[in-house]
Nucleic acid binder design. Sequence first.
DNA 1: CTGCTTGCAAATCTTTTGCATTGAA
DNA 2: TTCAATGCAAAAGATTTGCAAGCAG
Lengths: 143, 143
Amino acid sequence: MDNSIELLEKTLRKNNVFVTNARKTVFLALLNSEPRTMQELESRINSKINRTSIYRVIELFIGLGIVHKIQIGWKYKIELSDIFIEHHHHISCIKCGKLISVHEHGEIERFINKVTQKYGYTNTSHQLEIQGVCSNCKIIRAR
Amino acid sequence: MDNSIELLEKTLRKNNVFVTNARKTVFLALLNSEPRTMQELESRINSKINRTSIYRVIELFIGLGIVHKIQIGWKYKIELSDIFIEHHHHISCIKCGKLISVHEHGEIERFINKVTQKYGYTNTSHQLEIQGVCSNCKIIRAR
DNA sequence: CTGCTTGCAAATCTTTTGCATTGAA
DNA sequence: TTCAATGCAAAAGATTTGCAAGCAG
């Protein structure tokens, strides 16, 4: 909450960009929420900030590692990065779209470290997306 | 090659959709190649198949698990799925865009199985994308 | 034959650009 | 005051739709 906004401001200053109303507004629209599509962001922010600016803010945020994109079927969604929420992964249902978060991931981290080191990449981040049929849809489909 | 086309046809028939020229053409444009953007696909297929149809074929292929999208920065690319190429992951360089494939992934599989089972998802697939700064760009940037 | 597929043109939706104006430091 | 950041309008790009025509089974 307040804490997060402060961290945002700190991050922005550290990168020598201004702390502006638009940036705080977009950030708040993402705080404590499910990942959002651009449309959802737009309608949530609803005319307080221009659509173009939302794009520009998101682009900046991605560059600074404040948010990242996740791919869900055809669409992508935006979500705050690890600095603001605990790092995690998603499982989405290919039938109903239901999205759940997976917080256990020690193995993944170890794996990533191993291969990035092997190939000489530094400063790495990653996303893991899992798709499947959720237990509910499985029942329905089975008739 | 021929083998792959046969597997494609088998997959299409199994799903009760027609084996058509458009579908084979799009498939071939993806076979033995780097992941491609829609534009690259289009220009590669170059007017033999209408753009709309390419979209429709890709949509179908994604639904049937023949191809999948991978997110690289702002853009996504299309690549054949595990049935046609060995399952693997990517590391992309955020500076120069260089993309390399990572074929070791036993840990990932084990992890996926564990969590999907825990949350009751079946029929799962997954993508893991890793970003970082490649060794070359690291040197350049360091001056 | 039959109806799934494709092509075409137009509609929509998404994202980017240029430029004048505003506002943070 | 100064230049980064924003708003607005318009351009550019990407994706989808509706419908007539074509082709696989």
